[in-house]
Design a protein around this nucleic acid. Structure first.
Length: 430
RNA sequence: GCCGUCGUAGCUCAGCUCGGUAGAGCGGCUGGCUGUUAACCAGUCGGUCGUAGGUUCAAGUCCUACCGACGGCGCCA
């Protein structure tokens, strides 16, 4: 028996037993009002002195916030209850009387304080709603890819070498040697496509960048599909279908949580294929017309991404960035080799990039040349070059940042609330 | 890493301009209230004012350094 069952009206006038936690308690003389949370929802329970007797009433009176308890009673429909239903308590047992100094009050707290108490903060309805939506986003990613006949092939977290060369990696001892925590599983899924055709990896990734922004974590989760024989265009089509699926499923399954967050879902309902596509070159022109002093060849910062994103109602692809500024493995555009066949997907409502993807170089000679141009240690990439020696095929893939998607879908100001225990440059506790 | 703002009770903050020995609300505790909705009412507990140094008869308040947090930028998918 759960609070959800009661709120859905299935147990009215029935005797129920609930197990959960005391969210808050109010009283008015001989009646006490307990707000109980059991993981499926919240429900008001009433304890009447003249019905339960002095002993139980005293026990209830001594309950502290977040005490765990079991209670029995009858489910009643009552207009005075916050959700229309309440349980009239007959008996109550305390599992553990919580210490009286529970640090989180109903009033405001600062973010640093809340993060220090993150292990308790996740009990709050707002944080729980965000994490429920996160869980749904993850499930939608997996369901979508599984239904599209993808095979999950997870990549290692300990890696021997730098993947893209640029970003800072976390280093850790490894039996007398050094290892690095992965910053992308992409190179490894490029290997598994030759066994399975369409694959993805899904796991945590680590970046030791000293980024202090509302959209960076040092540890975050990424889903990285990789598809044999997929052209650049095929790749974009898959991305817009997947993102639309995620949004649709999340709206469908977690509408209550969006209400808790007071998230206006109208913009989300517009998310369906096809998404708009603009080239990097067009993006630069748009930005210049909007008064930015940015030249072709420069990378886009958050203000730029935001400006672009706000011009579209749906997510928008910005494609064909200058090849020089992009990763070594990206396929040059056959029409103009100055740009790469890559695209970033910008979430709407001023949120920036949520996906980065590209067609990969499948020609051995070209890849060898790029590794040299980028000054990468050739030896570390021999296995990766093997993939171009033995049955190389054109292929494409992308990486979708789970937390960035959740930040956008929930319309949050900061990414740190989208993961149960965020890791940032300055926080590793709790 | 750079720029800005901030650091006073468990929490959120006022007090700093103009130096004179610390305040509110919330939470906790005690009591009251038989339908509360961030309940309400009364009482009560609670602070070496981030740290170190300096100026001064006197520093929460002025000065310097450091530490920490937050916001923005940079780095970065």
């Amino acid at each position: 028996m759960s609070v959800r069952d009661i709120l859905e009206g299935r147990l009215t006038e029935k005797e129920v037993e609930l197990r959960g936690w005391l969210v808050t308690k109010r009283s008015s003389g001989g009646v006490q009002f307990l707000m109980i949370r059991d993981g499926t929802g919240r429900l008001q329970c009433t304890v009447h002195k003249d019905e339960v007797g002095e002993k139980i009433f005293q026990k209830t009176d001594k309950l502290t916030q977040e005490s765990s308890l079991t209670l029995k009673g009858i489910v009643k429909v009552d207009k005075r209850a916050p959700d229309g239903y309440e349980v009239k308590v007959r008996d109550l047992q305390v599992i553990q009387l919580a210490a009286q100094d529970y640090p989180l009050s109903k009033k405001e707290h600062g973010i640093d304080f809340l993060m220090d108490w993150r292990h308790l903060w996740i009990r709050s309805s707002r944080q729980a709603a965000i994490l429920k939506i996160r869980a749904e986003v993850i499930k939608a990613c997996r369901d979508f890819l599984d239904e599209e006949d993808f095979t999950l092939t997870d990549s290692p977290i300990f890696t021997p070498s730098i993947v893209e060369g640029a970003a800072t990696l976390f280093e850790t001892p490894y039996f007398g040697d050094k290892a690095f925590l992965t910053q992308s599983g992409q190179l490894y899924v490029e290997a598994t496509i030759a066994a399975f055709g369409k694959v993805y990896c899904f796991g945590p990734t680590f970046r030791a960048e000293r980024s202090k922004t509302p959209r960076h974590l040092t540890e975050f989760w990424m889903v990285e599909p990789e598809m044999a024989f997929f052209s650049f265009e095929d790749n974009l089509r898959l991305q817009e279908e997947m993102v639309s699926y995620i949004v649709k499923k999340t709206l469908e399954k977690r509408s209550k949580d969006f209400e808790v967050l007071k998230r206006d879902i109208k913009p989300l309902k517009k998310v369906e294929p096809p998404f708009d596509r603009i080239s990097y070159t067009e993006a630069i022109e748009i930005l210049q017309k909007n008064g930015y002093s940015i030249e072709w060849g420069e990378d886009l910062g958050l203000p730029h991404e935001r400006t672009i994103s706000l011009k579209f109602e749906k997510p928008v692809f910005v494609h064909r960035y200058p090849a020089r500024t992009r990763a070594f493995y990206m396929q040059p555009d056959p029409v103009d080799s100055k740009v790469a066949l890559c695209a970033d997907l910008m979430a709407p409502e001023g949120y920036g990039e949520i996906i980065g993807g590209s067609e990969r170089i499948h020609d051995l000679k070209l890849l060898e040349q790029r590794i040299e141009e980028f000054g990468l240690p050739r030896k570390a990439y021999e296995w990766y070059l093997d993939l171009r020696r033995y049955g190389s095929v054109p292929h494409s893939g992308f990486g979708l940042g789970i937390e960035r998607v959740v930040t956008w879908i929930c319309k949050l100001k900061h990414i740190r609330e989208t993961i149960p225990f965020p890791r940032t440059m300055t926080r590793i506790y709790p």
